[in-house]
């Protein structure tokens, strides 16, 4: 199920503004890849280009190639809707549907895949997804209550449950813990360690300790100045990035000398 992602010569634009330039990297399956860098360097933009969420913004477009197990995501015959069904996403701020119950939130993605699912199969899937997100014991007695009534950390795990319920091949996480307290953060990080057994995970984070704790590989994005496109400066095993990076800029950033 987990798949490998190859990105080559990727340029990302908002209208005429080039936000990210010349990204080349390959993301290994069944691992966690962290993207770090200062604000505005294009790491979230890059992440959103991996499941074609980038183009939701009017005028946004992409040049270059993103290939997942041989399939070009930006091929002319590829429907972005299908891409997003294969590649799940968790956002910076928890965003369960406020008008749906906890149960319906988890089932939302499954119901999109028009296949008729029987009530008992659906119950199983919801339970399995909530267990997968370490949320089952906390919510099993109030599945019909609104998801927006949960705490921030629980809501974020609910969003993860919703994303993994459709069995995606890749899970993208855009600063999933930045709105959470340390305990909820730990819960989500533990969860990521379990999920990488099954999924390819790419996470954007501002928290370098988090990148060091959870990821196998780290990419460092930076930009030369305001109005300049962001670039992938260094892409190496996390251990190397945090102990002996190839690039001076990476070392400066990690040691807190800027950014």
């Amino acid at each position: 199920m987990a798949k490998r992602i190859d990105v080559s010569d990727l340029d990302i634009y908002y209208g005429n503004f080039k936000a990210v330039e010349g990204v080349n990297l390959s993301i290994e399956p069944r691992s966690i890849t962290a993207l770090i860098g200062p604000s505005g360097c294009g790491k979230s933009t890059f992440l959103r280009s991996l499941n074609r969420m980038h183009e939701v913004i009017p005028g946004a477009r992409v040049e270059g190639k993103v290939v997942i197990e041989g399939q070009d995501l930006y091929g002319s015959d590829v429907d972005p809707v299908d891409v997003r069904r294969q590649i799940g996403m968790v956002f910076q701020r928890p965003n369960p549907f406020p008008t749906m119950s906890i149960y319906d939130n988890v089932a939302a993605g499954l119901r999109l895949n028009a296949k008729k699912t029987s009530k008992s199969d659906m119950d199983d899937l919801v339970e399995r997804s909530l267990k997968g997100a370490n949320l089952w014991t906390e919510v099993k007695d109030r599945l019909s209550r609104p998801g927006s009534g949960l705490s921030g950390g629980q809501q974020q795990r609910l969003c993860i449950a919703r994303a993994i319920a459709v069995q995606p091949e890749v899970l993208l996480m855009d600063e999933p813990c930045s709105a959470l307290d340390p305990i909820s953060t730990l819960a989500v990080e533990d969860l990521m360690m379990e999920l990488k057994e099954q999924f390819t995970i790419v996470i954007v984070t501002h928290n370098m300790q988090q990148a060091a704790r959870v990821s196998e590989t780290t990419g460092f994005f930076n930009l030369n100045g305001v109005g300049q496109p962001g670039r992938l400066i260094e892409y190496n095993p996390t251990e190397k990035i945090f102990s002996n990076p190839d690039e001076k800029a990476t070392e400066d950033y990690i040691s807190g000398r800027f950014g």
């Binding site: 499941n51 969420m53 939701v56 809707v81 299908d82 891409v83 997003r84 069904r85 294969q86 799940g88 996403m89 956002f91 701020r93 965003n95 369960p96 549907f97 406020p98 008008t99 749906m100 939302a108 993605g109 999109l112 895949n113 969003c159 919703r162 994303a163 459709v166």
Partner: peptide, 23 residues
């Protein structure tokens, strides 16, 4: 946040409207 949540699950525009906008 809500419209993107629906789109990221692989909703078409109409499904997004049904899922996030109308409710």
């Amino acid at each position: 946040l809500h419209t993107e949540a629906a789109l990221a699950l692989g909703a078409t525009r109409w499904e997004m409207i049904k899922m996030a906008v109308i409710p």
